[in-house]
């Protein structure tokens, strides 16, 4: 494992911790898209079924369990927690996420490395992860004002993607048979979706002002 992959995993983990912290400390999930969180839970469940079939390392297995557990916990809190669920911006979170799921499943059936159950699910999870942030970005755009922790959450998610791209570039030059084009193309799409958000994030950071997205 190279440093970029490790930093990518760590920023991913930090983003989830920030989200849990926000929900735990403020007992509020305002500004957070339940649809995006449900998509992430689905992404992790579909991709990490290989916990039962392939063993890569203790690190990988532990991280997989952490990602599945934390994403389910967040969805549970937003849907079921007595206090937290009241702050959910339901009327702003109207993205039709089922269409994303259907489109990604169709694409996974057409384009995958091998037509087996686990490989189709794996490709599905990669495609879905690439677009899972869309409901969240739409919600932020609609609400305009972004609170600090929500801004940090999306920033660290974006950083995770950026580090994974550096990781693939590194692996491309250091490994002889590195050709995971499904991951790379999807990863590039996913990172591109953050470009706009990053732009406004850096503007607000430079001006030392509150993060605001244009309507």
């Amino acid at each position: 494992m190279n440093i970029f992959r490790f930093l990518g995993d760590m920023t991913h983990l930090i983003s989830i911790l920030i989200l849990l912290l926000k929900i735990y400390a403020t007992k509020s999930c305002s500004g957070i898209s339940l649809k995006t969180q449900e998509l992430y839970a689905l992404v992790f469940l579909a991709r990490y079924l290989d916990l039962f079939t392939d063993f890569i390392s203790v690190y990988n297995s532990v991280m997989k369990v952490v990602f599945i557990a934390s994403s389910l916990a967040i969805v549970w809190c937003m849907r079921r927690h007595r206090v937290v669920r009241r702050s959910y911006d339901k009327e702003l979170d109207t993205f039709r996420h089922y269409f994303l799921v259907a489109a990604c499943l169709a694409l996974a059936l057409l384009v995958q490395e091998k037509f087996t159950f686990l490989e189709v699910l794996w490709a599905f999870s990669i495609y879905l992860e690439a677009v899972a942030i869309l409901p969240q970005l739409v919600l932020l755009q609609r609400s305009g004002n972004v609170d600090n922790l929500t801004g940090q959450y999306v920033f660290f998610l974006g950083a995770y993607r950026a580090f994974y791209i550096l990781n693939w570039i590194y692996r491309y030059f250091t490994e002889t048979h590195f050709s995971r084009w499904i991951s790379c193309v999807s990863g590039l799409v996913q990172t591109a979706l953050y470009a706009d958000f990053f732009y406004y994030y850096f503007i607000s950071w430079k001006n030392n002002s509150k993060l605001q997205l244009p309507a």
Binding site: I56, T116, R180
Partner: peptide
């Protein structure tokens, strides 16, 4: 190479 890659990333 038609073999599926080992998915060693998260």
């Amino acid at each position: 190479n038609t073999e599926a890659e080992v998915h060693d990333e998260l």
